[in-house]
């Protein structure tokens, strides 16, 4: 039972953490290697709320705003000139990630931060006591996933975003301001990533470079998912389960690389990954 819950919650966490990167890659086809830095920023929003003595939940709106603004600046200044050079965009955003990581270090020091957890206690699930927060993560992941699907299929931004994904030249010819769609997407993706950073704080230690550890896993999951939310959800569940299984039965250290290795193999055998499943 614990294994099933672990698998589900791990999948949920992976989904939450990947979603910001996924948005940006899905629409812009740009791999944002500053994603790890957004996660870090979000986590430090919790440090700020703690210092101010307010509820750690308030870190969420703070992270959303900070992430969004910085995301907007990033798109404008760094990413926009590089749409034609996608490999260089990876490098430039990675460089940006270094800068943000060091700025956080300068502001808060390089030590691990102690933060009050968002939620404590356990819940009894069919006779097993389980962390309430990890269960909440499932709900949050579902909410984000549903939000994506609804946003893409029901809103005007979603419609234009889909148009840009399918055929950007045509979208522009039809009078869609693709530059604005890109800006909005990048801002939203960064904001969601920063919020994911807040949500990560109870699960991982908070230090300036915490995001880097998550970056590769997220990146690989997004690679096998393409532009499909369902594919991302499926990938998180399958590989999250595999990670828990390897971590439990083989070695916790090897469990940490399960997602990356399986994704790489999957792309070799099936270049489209889960897209189109």
């Amino acid at each position: 039972m614990v294994l099933v819950l672990d698998s589900l919650t791990t999948a949920a966490v992976l989904f939450i953490v990947s979603s910001g990167l996924f948005m940006i890659f899905g629409v812009l086809q740009i791999i944002n290697f500053a994603h790890g830095a957004w996660l870090g920023l979000g986590a430090y929003a919790t440090v700020v709320t703690t210092a101010l003595g307010v509820s750690p939940w308030l870190a969420l709106p703070l992270a959303f705003v900070v992430g969004g603004v910085l995301g907007g600046l990033t798109e404008r200044l760094v990413v926009r000139p590089l749409y034609a050079r996608p490999l260089d965009a990876i490098l430039a955003t990675w460089g940006l990630g270094i800068v943000i990581g060091q700025l956080i270090t300068l502001a808060f020091g390089r030590d691990v931060q102690m933060i009050p957890v968002l939620m404590t206690g356990t819940v009894d699930v069919l006779g097993t006591a389980y962390s309430a927060y990890r269960l909440t993560a499932i709900a949050i992941a579902l909410a984000i996933g549903l939000g994506f699907v609804l946003a893409l299929e029901r809103t005007r931004l979603g419609l234009t975003a889909r148009a840009v994904i399918m055929n950007e030249a045509l979208a522009r010819a039809l009078g869609i301001n693709t530059a604005r769609v890109r800006l909005a997407t990048f801002m939203l993706g960064s904001a969601v990533a920063a919020c994911a950073g807040v949500l990560l704080t109870p699960l991982t230690s908070v230090d300036p470079n915490m995001g880097v550890i998550w970056l590769i896993g997220c990146f690989m999951l997004v690679m096998v998912s393409g532009s499909s939310v369902r594919a991302l959800a499926l990938a998180c569940i399958v590989f999250g389960t595999a990670q828990v299984a390897v971590g439990t039965y083989v070695s916790p250290i090897l469990g940490g690389m399960t997602v990356a290795v399986l994704c790489a193999l999957m792309l070799r055998l099936r270049p489209k990954g889960f897209a189109g499943v």
Partner: peptide, 17 residues
């Protein structure tokens, strides 16, 4: 220590651009 990394990161971004 941190300023050096910061500087390298910033120069790198500017260079790539």
């Amino acid at each position: 220590p941190f300023l050096w990394q910061l500087l390298i990161g910033a120069i790198f971004v500017v260079m790539i651009l």
